[in-house]
């Protein structure tokens, strides 16, 4: 026991080192790409109206941080995503489970929700702006319905895919309606719910950017689209990088742990 602990302690720092080295070597190609960027823009003397140099993007970053506009845009976008997604999930999961409990109802409703999940997101932009006017309402509605339809549809599928024998087993072990819900239906459908959230959020994120280009005067999509009017490619590229980084953060910090905690842990799906 003591030797094992000693061994682990000795391995500790080198393992941490190896992780850092691993991360750096993993990111190496990306770093190369970023190093190549200024080389190419200066070597070929690229017109900044076509593609900006690194310095310009950096300057745009500094400027937008200093005048606070970057944070205003990020805040507006994230706020809409947060509200729309939270609302969507809160409505979708109970609804999906309620509909999925009876196999008759769920087979009846599946085509309906399939149809609407096909439309979910961007296709609602025109009617949303007609109903809610340009602004927060319309955009949040687009995000809401992207998440709502897809999560409901997946929850519905998830609940109806729970083997009957599991429900019978729980019932014969004395589970009441409540216990059936919390012990069998919810955990059983969770992998599908998580998949639904991932897909829905993916659609919502795109819907957000698209809607902000059309229907508002603050937000990352707006920032990009206005910059286009003035041929300010450095602002556009900055916005693209911010959008990419935010999505990576959402993906790594929110979605991946959620999947790891449910789907992979239970051995229902193996990710590479």
């Amino acid at each position: 026991m003591a030797t094992a602990e000693l061994g682990a302690a000795r391995l500790g720092p080198s393992r941490a080192m190896r992780r850092v080295v691993g991360a750096v070597t993993f990111l190496l190609p990306l770093l190369c790409l970023f190093l190549l960027w200024p080389v190419v823009t200066t070597a070929f003397d690229v017109n900044p109206r076509v593609f900006p140099g690194v310095g310009m993007v950096w300057a745009a970053l500094v400027e937008s941080v200093r005048d606070g506009s970057l944070f205003a845009h990020i805040g507006a976008s994230l706020g809409r995503v947060l509200v729309g997604t939270a609302l969507g999930i809160l409505v979708a999961v109970p609804l999906g489970i309620a509909m999925g409990v009876s196999s008759g109802i769920s087979t009846f409703l599946t085509p309906l929700f399939r149809f609407f999940s096909v439309l979910a997101g961007i296709a609602w932009i025109p009617i949303a702006t007609l109903w809610f006017g340009y602004g927060f309402g319309a955009i949040t509605f687009v995000i809401f319905n992207a998440v709502f339809f897809i999560v409901t549809y997946n929850t519905l599928l998830g609940v109806s895919a729970i083997p009957m024998r599991l429900r019978h087993a729980a019932a014969s072990l004395g589970a009441g309606r409540r216990a059936m819900l919390t012990e069998v239906l919810l955990p059983g459908a969770l992998p599908n719910i998580v998949t639904g959230i991932r897909t829905g959020l993916g659609f919502a994120w795109r819907g957000l950017i698209a809607a902000e280009m059309i229907a508002t005067n603050v937000g990352l999509g707006y920032m990009l689209f206005v910059a286009r009017d003035f041929y300010r490619t450095e602002v556009i590229v900055l916005g693209m990088i911010v959008i990419g980084a935010l999505w990576l953060l959402i993906d790594r910090l929110l979605l991946a742990p959620l999947e790891r905690a449910t789907i992979e842990r239970w051995g229902l799906v193996t990710r590479s």
Binding site: P29, M213, M240, G244, D251
Partner: peptide, 20 residues
């Protein structure tokens, strides 16, 4: 990593620069 990065940017965010 390059594929992951570009995937994260997302298609629609490309529209403004593509228009240029």
């Amino acid at each position: 990593p390059i594929i992951l990065f570009f995937q994260a940017i997302g298609d629609i965010a490309w529209l403004p620069i593509l228009l240029i």
